[in-house]
């Protein structure tokens, strides 16, 4: 029991399927992970791997749509999937809040930034409009928006991209949530602004102690901010573990591909980049066996045709590290040694 109470969030065998004219889209298909209070989990993966769908499932945002959601999502011991909508709403924006990739489209164009933050506060606190607006101003100040007293009355289109994302963060944190889900919060921003936003999130996490799930496709962002990493491929986790484990001891071919296809500022210039052959699989008819097998360059190292016939299970490789691959530990070790990019950064 105490083992369970340790987790703030437990996602178990989550499935989110969308019925479409072409067939059932298995956007998330058997995803399992957990998160402890105050920690940061980075979810990485190609676009279409199910990252956003997962984050929306946690908040129950697929309710009322044709999507079929099953599995278990426990937040602080409470099962969210069959929680009555009234109770779920009490959690949304209060205990769990969310920020999105494009802050311009995520903010309502017709209401001032202050009003929108105040609304998030008033939904969960019985205070007057004026008190809520004062709180909004306080939050804007906290996230580093200059002239917050004036800015609170301005509209989203009057803010720059970075300011808007700060405002979104202010809105997400106005109720001091225990979990903040950030879905590609810096993808639409310049690196300089991204750096500001990441610093801000780290600082606020230190102050508020919230757990964070940060979704991104930028491994640099994960390396910067995450304690744990979850690598998603075609709707499920293919590797997960502590950030150093996954970056320095990556345990399966897709992660190898991701890590070595990135050009790096520190590595020798001019050599060809590693690539991952092929393209992401159909989520309607996912490949048999290992979902990555059609693109995998290493399945020759696995004896027999297990990769094509049998889905690999998520198996623990280290204390805090699991991967979904049929390769023997010895073979993995040999490949890691060959991959220069991973090798060179592996020397800590």
């Amino acid at each position: 029991m105490s083992e369970q109470a340790r987790h703030l969030l437990e996602v178990d065998d989550l499935e989110v399927h969308f019925p479409t004219a072409d067939g059932l889209v298995r956007a998330v298909d058997g995803l399992t992970f957990s998160l402890e209070p105050g920690r940061t989990l980075g979810i990485v993966g190609e676009s279409g791997s199910g990252k956003s769908v997962t984050s929306q499932a946690i908040l129950g945002l697929h309710r009322g749509t044709p999507a079929k959601v099953s599995g278990r999502i426990r937040f602080d011991g409470v099962e969210l999937l069959d929680l009555p909508i009234k109770d779920l709403r009490r959690l949304r924006g209060n205990d769990i809040s969310m920020i999105f990739q494009d802050p311009l489209s995520a903010l309502h164009p017709y209401y001032s930034v202050g009003k929108q933050i105040a609304e998030a506060y008033r939904v969960h606190h019985s205070v007057s409009r004026r008190q809520a607006l004062a709180r909004a101003e306080e939050m804007l100040e906290l996230v580093g928006i200059p002239n917050a007293g004036r800015r609170v009355h301005e509209y989203p289109h009057q803010f720059s991209g970075g300011m808007r994302q700060r405002a979104m963060i202010a809105m997400a944190l106005v109720n001091d949530p225990r979990l903040l889900i950030a879905d590609e919060p810096t993808t639409a921003l310049d690196v300089t602004v991204q750096a500001q936003i990441l610093e801000l999130m780290k600082k606020l996490q230190r102050e508020f102690g919230s757990a964070i799930i940060i979704i991104t496709h930028d491994l640099g962002v994960v390396a910067d901010i995450a304690d744990d990493v979850l690598v998603m491929y075609a709707g499920h986790a293919v590797e997960q573990g502590a950030v150093n484990e996954v970056f320095y001891q990556p345990d399966m071919p897709y992660t190898w591909g991701l890590l070595s296809s990135m050009p790096r500022i520190g590595s020798p210039r001019g050599q060809r980049l590693a690539t991952i052959a092929g393209s992401p699989p159909s989520l309607i008819r996912p490949p048999s066996g290992c979902r990555f097998h059609p693109r995998c360059a290493y399945r020759g190292l696995v004896e027999g045709d297990a990769c094509v016939t049998t889905p690999p299970r998520l198996v623990a490789g280290g204390a805090d590290h699991r991967a979904r691959c049929h390769l023997e530990p010895g073979a993995r070790e040999r490949v890691r040694l060959q991959l220069s990019t991973i090798d060179s950064v592996g020397e800590r």
């Binding site: 991204q194 750096a195 962002v221 520190g266």
Partner: peptide, 8 residues
């Protein structure tokens, strides 16, 4: 500002 894909 460009984050390196190397945690350490």
């Amino acid at each position: 500002a460009a984050p390196l894909p190397d945690p350490v």
